[in-house]
Design a protein around this nucleic acid. Sequence first.
DNA 1: TTGGTATGAATGAACG
DNA 2: CGTTCATTCATACCAA
Lengths: 216, 216
Amino acid sequence: MTDEQLETLRKQIAVYASICEQLVEMHKNLTAHQDLAGGRLGNLYCDPLMTSAGHKITARQRWTPTPVQLQILERIFDQGTGTPSKQKIKDITSELSQHGQISETNVYNWFQNRRARSKRKQLVASSNNAESEVETEVESPNEKKTNPENLLSHHNPAPRAEDLCFQNPEITSELHFLSVLSNPPTYHGDDHLSGKMGVPGNYGIYEQAEDYNMAG
Amino acid sequence: MTDEQLETLRKQIAVYASICEQLVEMHKNLTAHQDLAGGRLGNLYCDPLMTSAGHKITARQRWTPTPVQLQILERIFDQGTGTPSKQKIKDITSELSQHGQISETNVYNWFQNRRARSKRKQLVASSNNAESEVETEVESPNEKKTNPENLLSHHNPAPRAEDLCFQNPEITSELHFLSVLSNPPTYHGDDHLSGKMGVPGNYGIYEQAEDYNMAG
DNA sequence: TTGGTATGAATGAACG
DNA sequence: CGTTCATTCATACCAA
């Protein structure tokens, strides 16, 4: 079993997770207020699932710069050219392609990430490493970029399956079993947060508990 | 990844298939009695896990569209109305708020981003138009770009999972396909398994090419 | 194998 | 509008 195949399976699961979630929504919708209209789920749209083939499954790996490429990239980055233009990107890509597979996207992303990472590193370093418990829960409405530690912003810790409330306990149990398994290998998105550990799990296929601060 | 885990994943998919079937059944029953009903489907999930944890779910900093919302947005986007008017934005927002927290700003940004990225994708695709596979071309109607899916190219123009047709009885066809999967033949080779067991032409739920392309 | 970390990639939001 | 930033997610790689 290769990783690609495994990943394909994971994505399959994610697809069905999504389907199930939406089905559950429909079901709840129907059972909750049977006389209360508002559901247009029955006659909504329906995207005919394309039956076209498409077997580029073996393509899922992300680009990994070779040492030589990395060296060149670092050198260019250190030259101060913060944001290479499109043409520059092409140039660099052409240059690097002599040392391995690479694309403009890779170069572009690399610079983006590189810059962001440097910035964040500096910010965290200059700020302070002593995280106290007095983190202000209020996020600056205008400068949310300056408060990397307040929100306990690990991602959804709860497996989605548990969120599904069925009327049938049988299904619920099934989902329970599911959730255990669908734990992805790892996840640990960010380390810039103060001191809390991210919770592994959560494939994040769908969100439902969104409570953001939206600016009109 | 071992074979046992692979087997477990298969079981998981099978379970999802079962769940979907039952949900479809339930939905059918409910919709049969009432021609079309259903109340506002809020996100009134009962999440025993989170509540037991004690703390509230962390609010995200940025809006993340739910699958349903994405589906609707994509659909509207594909309708050609490139620049939704203010009123249109309001309308869409109202519509989408039935499926999760959202604001007009989100909708506006989404369309802006969507368009910009489509454009850029198109641009890059034309520049890197090296070769063309004849796989999912049928699925790229207009601006979906004719991406060169070479070996290393991993992005697919396929719609997301939410594009799956589930609002209609036609979901049964998907489930049917699924049942095939849940009956895993032990003979599966390397490429065949992952190559054909996916939803046709649709794997990525979140992954999507953006600016440039992963050329090979 | 399992768990953690580094980092490539996706995307909502903001800036000009 | 096009470009860039910031945040998050997912995967490659490494350590135990």
